[in-house]
Design a protein around this nucleic acid. Structure first.
Lengths: 171, 171
DNA sequence: CCCGTTTCATTAACTCGTTAAGTTAAAGGC
DNA sequence: GCCTTTAACTTAACGAGTTAATGAAACGGG
């Protein structure tokens, strides 16, 4: 409390109550718990996401993997190369559409999932136990609802609001 | 629904209901709304966080800025250099402790905050209007509580749980 | 059938995240 | 007053995020 000196009046929103920053901090705190486990299994956070997405589908093209794992296409291109070299995943070209690259789990990737699954579940359950089961479920629902807002119409509306505010705000 | 083929039984948690991934997707959705505004003002997301942190304090050392903006020290070192060159912030050494580097807003940084503040507020208010004021406040509270869990004792407990599960799980 | 358009993937360039190691300065023990 | 330890930053190296541009293949009129 002692370090809140005369605040300039022009700042946007208090950092303490900013939704983007709250999301960032929460994610960091959660990932800090999972990172040691992933390190032990030789994969990073993004590779782990790719493996899990592929575990839920037989075979997917790169665009779908990127969308489901929340990874951008250029990142996935780099990752797929190194993961294929390590035997975590397998790549092949789509016979019907030569633009597409199809990805699937390879044995080493299945092995990582298999041996990490129990640890991952334990960490998840420990977190849920600390934070509360109902509270966690509700939080995930809210987060998914928030993510679902980010569709085209909403984005345009937000952009218009920005322009209007800029006209009216600080003349 | 048609793309959920025979799921291998060894996967950790359904990607749809994973808390880390929900946090990631929600943050992406929110930031997608703010990014065009930040682009117009010539700063990226991390620089914006630094500016806002400095706007809330007269002068802070690098460690405190990093902590409040959720930026790692090596990243802040790089950023402080380029932001100082652009006149967004000012750097000076602490007279009493020659290890410390003190950061404060410079005129160009104040100008960015001043001209972007109204747009930022408009975007924030638009988001709150869409998502619901009470719901947003509750969400931020939950996220802060979640972030607060990530303290030392909790981390050690989670790590122990991981080891136990590995022993018991797939021998 | 051809040509403009769209889609999928890749490459490139830059910045940040992350870890580890190195530098300099302050603190503490004896 | 040294000498070890700790703290604050910096540097380096590598991978991922982001944007823009390119390449290649499919699509869709005309």
């Amino acid at each position: 409390m002692s370090d809140a000196p005369p605040r300039p009046a022009f700042l946007p929103t208090d950092v303490r109550h900013s939704l983007p920053m709250a999301l960032l901090r929460a994610r960091e705190a959660v990932m800090a718990r999972f990172r040691p486990m992933l390190d032990r299994h030789g994969v990073n956070e993004q590779q782990w996401r790719v493996l899990r997405v592929l575990a839920e589908a037989e075979e997917l093209d790169a665009t779908q993997v990127a969308a489901r794992a929340s990874i951008l296409a250029p990142s996935l291109t780099r990752m797929a190369k190194s993961m294929a070299e390590r035997g975590l995943i397998a790549r092949r070209k789509d016979a019907g559409d030569a633009r597409r690259v199809l990805l699937r789990l390879a044995p080493a990737g299945e092995a990582v999932l298999r041996t990490a699954a129990s640890e991952s579940r334990a960490l998840t359950e420990a977190l849920i136990a600390e934070f509360g089961a109902e509270r966690t479920a509700a939080l995930i629902d809210h987060l998914n609802a928030l993510a679902a807002l980010g569709s085209e119409a909403a984005l345009r509306a937000a952009d218009r609001a920005g322009h209007e505010a800029r006209d009216a705000g600080d003349g």
